[in-house]
Simulated scan of single mutants.
Amino acid sequence: MPPASSRDDFLVTRANRDALAMLDAPQGWPQGRLLLVGGAGAGKSHLAGFWADERGAQIVQAWSLTPQGADALVPADGALVIEDGHEIGGNAQAEQGLFHLWNLAGARQCLLLITARSVPRDWGIGLADLRSRLDTAVQALLVPPDDALLPAVLVKLFADRQIQVAPEVIDWLALRMDRDLDLARRLVAAMDRESLADRRAISRRLAAELLDKLAAPDP
């Protein structure tokens, strides 16, 4: 079953409230462009997904961009989402594609939302003209989860898999794991797999075993 991904399913806390407010006020985006920046699992795709649905916008992966395809992607007076902008660094075709798309979006008054795991200066972009344009864009930052968001996300991740977990398991995890939503996603998936494979209940003991494995540093 796919995860619940509507606006109503998005968990709003201090960690993401400001980014959501910026997303909902595109009239305040300089030149109609916004970078949505956050770590893996921070909620970028969820935010971008319902924003795109509400505006009838297409979602395109950054690595797939080409100079030849840019024109067909940019609607006049519409909106467009580019996912995973950080993946274009060193990909000359994708860099040129985003550069053309960026210019076309301005000319056609098309809102442009770009998601990424890091700020543009860390993408390794070789095209200087694109790098300078990205550096001028306003950024909406998704910060690490706060005390309210992490347990709420754990509950949602289990619910997406139609699993009910005792509150004490959620509380135990929230107190002991890093505030890392990607780790939360991987941990819930691993607990689901282990529970089904070994016919074990999802318990604090299982949570502890898998948390130790997934949080351990690479050798």
Rank of each mutant, 00 (worst) to 15 (best):
V81Q: 09
M177K: 03
R199K: 14
F10A: 13
L112E: 13
I125L: 13
N16K: 01
P167C: 13
A201W: 04
G89F: 09
D192R: 08
K213A: 09
Q164A: 13
K156I: 04
S45M: 08
P120I: 05
D180L: 13
I82C: 11
L175V: 06
G89A: 09
V81A: 10
E168H: 12
R161Y: 06
W123K: 12
Q139C: 10
L36F: 01
P120K: 02
A70E: 01
A137R: 10
G89C: 09
R17G: 05
G41M: 12
L173Y: 00
L113S: 11
I202Y: 02
S195H: 05
A19S: 03
P217W: 02
S5W: 15
I163M: 09
D198N: 12
D147P: 01
G28A: 11
A208P: 00
L101N: 03
D135I: 05
I88G: 05
G85K: 05
L47F: 04
P151D: 02
E87F: 11
G43E: 15
P144Q: 15
W102E: 06
A159V: 07
P120G: 04
D218V: 06
G69Y: 14
R131N: 09
D147Q: 14
A4N: 15
A166C: 08
L134M: 03
G39P: 08
R161L: 09
L206V: 00
